[in-house]
Design a protein around this nucleic acid. Structure first.
Lengths: 241, 241
DNA sequence: GCCGGTAGTTGAACGTGTTCAAATTCAGCT
DNA sequence: AGCTGAATTTGAACACGTTCAACTACCGGC
C-alpha cells in the first residue's frame, strides 16, 4: 500500500491538474473570468468537462489556485527587491508596488477576486479563518517587511501590524481593480501617498503619548477577528491531493 | 398623450413590479438568496418568468431594490429616535444600532449584499459612482447625524465625515453578516467600542495640532474617490469583473 | 500473467439565470 | 366601435456551472 509520493516526478493526476489550471489562467487573462466557461477550459486543455471538476471542485477554486500562484510569483520578485531596502517606508512601497505589478496581466479578471471576497470561506475576506495557508503566507510577508527595519514599534502594535498591513494592501488592490486610469497611475500615486501616511501613522501610534488610544484600538481589533471564529461550515477541504 | 402619473393609484405595471419585489423579498427572508430561484419567485407571484425579468433586469436588481426599501425602513425608525439624542456619540450609536435592527430579518440573505459590493456599479461599493441615489440618501443620513450636534469639527473634515461614517457603517454591516454569536451580541459590542473610538478620533483629528496630518489624509480621500469617476458603463451591461 | 482496487476520466443530465420573438392587453384617438 | 402603437406578458430556448453513475487505465500483490 503506497503512502505518499515522497520523491520523483509528478504523478499523472498532478500533470492534468496543472494543465487545467494553466489553461484556465491563460483564458482568464485573455477573456476574463465570466467569459471563460468551464467547457471552454476543458476543451482547450483537451480533457472532459467532468475531469476539470475532478481537480477543481468549482470554478471558484480556480481563483483560489490563482491566488496561490500569484503569491508565489510575487515572492519571487519581492524577496530580492527587499534586500536593498532598509526603511519601513521603502520596504512597504516595494511590497505593494511589486504586488500590483505582478497582478498586472490579470487586471480585467481581478474583479471577481473581490466579488467573493466577502464570502466567509474566502481567504481574501479579512474576517475569514486565519488558518488558511494562502492567506497566512500573504500576511507573513508583511511580517518580513517589519522584521527588516529598525523602526521602534511597541510590541502590542508590532504583533498586529502584519495583519493590518495586509488588510491595507487588500484595499490598494481593490482600488487598483477599479482604477481605469492609464497605466494605473492613480493606483501608484495612491500607494505613494498612503505609504507615506501609514509611515507617519505608525510612528505616531508608537508614541508613548498614544498608548491608551492604541491599546483601545488593538483591543477592538481582537474583537473584530473573533467574528469568524465560529465559522463551522466545512470549509471545502483543499481541492484534491 | 399621458405624461406621468401625477396622482392616484399605481399603474398596472407598478403593481406587478411591487408584487414581484414583495414576493422576492419574502422568499429571500425565508430561504436565502441563492436558494430562491427566479422561477419560484415568478410562480409564487403568479406571473411568468419573463415578466419578472421585464421589471428586474437581473436577479441582482432585486438586491438593489431591497437596499432601497431597507433604507426607507431604516429612516422611519431612526429619524424619530434621533430627536432625543444630542451628542455625536449617542446619535451615531442610534443610527448604527437601528440599522442593524432593521436588517435583522435578512441576516442570512445579507451575505450576498457584499458578494457583489465590489462590483463597480454596486451602490455598496465605496468607490462606486457617487451619483447613485440610494447611496446618496444613505450618506446623507450621516450628514444629518452631524448636523444635529454641537460638536466642533473643522470644515474640511466636516465635509468628508458623512462619507467616512457611511463607509464605517458598511464595515459594521459586513461584520454583522459574519457574526454568528447569539443575538449578534458581538456586533453590538463592536458598535459600542467603535463608536466610542470614533468619537475620540474625530475630536483628536479636530485638534489644531493635527491639522497637517488631517489635511494629508483628506487629500488622500479625494484621490481615493477619483478612482471610479471614469466608470462610464451603463449599469449592468458588463458581465463580470 | 492475472486480480482487485484506486485514481483518473467521460459525457449525459439537471437546475439555474437570462434572452427573445411573439402574443396579449391597454389607453387614447378618430 | 374600431384602430394603433406602446406597455405588458408569455414560455420556449440557450448557455452555463455542477453532479453523477459508469467506464477506463494503471499499479501493487499474488
Amino acid at each position: 500500500m503506497m503512502r505518499k509520493k515522497k520523491t520523483s516526478k509528478l504523478g499523472k493526476g498532478d500533470q492534468t491538474k496543472a494543465l487545467i489550471l494553466e489553461t484556465a489562467l491563460e483564458m482568464f487573462r485573455e477573456r476574463g473570468y465570466d467569459e471563460t466557461t468551464m467547457r471552454a477550459v476543458a476543451q482547450k486543455a483537451g480533457v472532459s468537462l467532468g475531469n476539470a471538476y475532478y481537480y477543481f471542485r468549482s470554478k471558484e477554486y480556480l481563483i483560489q489556485a490563482f491566488y496561490q500562484r500569484l503569491h508565489e510569483s510575487h515572492l519571487e520578485v519581492v524577496l530580492p527587491a527587499l534586500e536593498n531596502e532598509k526603511t519601513l517606508k521603502a520596504r512597504l512601497l516595494t511590497v505593494v508596488r511589486t504586488k500590483i505589478e505582478t497582478m498586472e496581466p490579470y487586471h480585467q479578471f481581478a474583479g471577481v477576486l473581490f466579488k467573493t471576497a466577502a464570502h466567509p470561506q474566502s481567504p481574501l475576506n479579512p474576517f475569514a479563518d486565519e488558518t488558511d495557508p494562502v492567506r497566512q503566507a500573504s500576511i507573513q510577508l508583511f511580517d518580513l517587511v517589519l522584521a527588516g527595519t529598525k523602526a521602534r514599534i511597541p510590541n502590542d502594535l508590532r504583533a498586529e501590524l502584519p495583519y493590518l498591513l495586509w488588510v491595507y494592501h487588500m484595499g490598494i488592490v481593490l482600488f487598483w481593480i477599479h482604477d481605469s486610469s492609464p497605466k494605473h497611475r492613480r493606483t501608484y500615486r495612491l500607494i505613494n501617498h498612503t505609504v507615506d501616511l501609514l509611515d507617519k501613522l505608525i510612528h505616531l501610534a508608537s508614541n508613548p503619548f498614544m498608548r491608551p488610544l492604541r491599546k483601545q484600538a488593538l483591543r477592538l481589533l481582537d474583537e473584530l477577528r473573533d467574528a469568524a471564529e465560529s465559522v463551522d461550515n466545512e470549509p471545502a477541504e483543499t481541492a484534491s491531493s
